[in-house]
């Protein structure tokens, strides 16, 4: 079975600056995959290339065994995306928007209507469905973007910061939905700065830094990797692990945090 998402030597440069540099990814079907990295590391650029929103400078992407660039329409049938800007149409109502997206993904009218209603109810947007999206709060927009991303029942879901600005209740609802999708065999590719969420949801994680993948594997593999490095690197940086397993935050800081952390002599001495 081909990987659900595969990237080969994916590279993207902007005016001489290489945002993503020869990254290789292979995400198996059914994985809940967390894609982490500091700000500006290349996460959004990568997700845009994986979903066809951005052309790579070089390299290729395959989704469910099909090449994204040679067969984009076939690939797009099977993927759902919540992109960085949420891709909402401000002058539509939520119901109109879902109807539009459903039809654009090839659903028939009856199915689109039925799923729109279910999704609006599921997301708690039914009583807001006559309001224009322009009048939605950020969190409501996020929920609607999520609803639109799954309306066609995608096999692979790309989520760029899906929980940003979403309240705890809605976040719980969304998590439940995502876990059920995973249980039914979908693959989810998620970026988030909230490491606790990634740790709770994801089975596999990749960390990107300065445009390159610096760690890749299951959480257990990453833990083992970091712990194996500790004797050389010094345990203090990663925190005390004697009480239990390393958290994802500790792994993340250990992998990318050192270069980014301020040195004591660089402390902002004028701060009170």
């Amino acid at each position: 079975m081909p990987p659900a998402i595969a990237a080969y030597a994916l590279t993207r440069s902007f005016d001489g600056f290489t945002a993503v540099n020869h990254i290789d990814l292979a995400i198996e079907p059914g994985q809940f995959f967390g894609f982490l990295g500091p700000n500006g590391a290349g996460k959004s650029t990568t997700i845009k290339m994986l979903t066809g929103l951005l052309a790579p400078s070089s390299g290729s992407v395959q989704i469910l065994g099909q090449d994204l660039f040679y067969n984009p329409i076939e690939v797009k049938r099977h993927i759902g995306v919540v992109p960085e800007g949420m891709a909402l149409f401000a002058k539509l109502t939520a119901r109109e928007y879902l109807r539009f997206v459903g039809r654009m993904y090839g659903l028939d009218k009856a199915t689109t209507e039925q799923r729109s209603e279910e999704l609006l109810e599921f997301m708690g947007l039914t009583d807001q469905s006559k309001k224009l999206i322009a009048d939605y709060s950020h969190g409501m927009g996020k929920k609607l973007a999520m609803a639109a991303a799954v309306i066609h029942g995608p096999k692979v879901l790309f989520l760029d910061e899906p929980f940003e600005g979403v309240d705890a209740i809605a976040a719980g609802t969304l998590k439940t939905m995502l876990q059920r999708m995973i249980a039914r065999g979908a693959t989810i590719f998620l970026t988030s700065h909230v490491l606790e969420i990634v740790e709770r949801l994801c089975s596999h994680v990749a960390i990107i830094n300065h445009g390159q993948i610096v760690a890749h594997g299951s959480l257990e593999e990453l833990r083992a990797g970091v712990q194996a490095r500790w004797p050389q690197d010094g345990a203090a940086d990663a925190g005390d692990t004697s009480q239990g397993r390393l958290t994802l935050e500790q792994i993340f800081l250990n992998v990318v945090g050192r270069g980014a952390a301020a040195h004591p002599e660089q402390e902002l001495s004028w701060l009170s």
């Binding site: 028939d108 708690g124 939905m177």
Partner: peptide
């Protein structure tokens, strides 16, 4: 939001059914 856990739990079944159906859709 109308965060009625019972309702939400019930409604999650709907997307489950639909997602299964999605594999065969859209027919045209």
């Amino acid at each position: 939001g109308r965060a009625d856990p019972a309702t939400m739990h019930a409604s999650t079944a709907a997307p489950a059914r639909r997602a299964a159906a999605a594999d065969s859709e859209p027919a045209d």
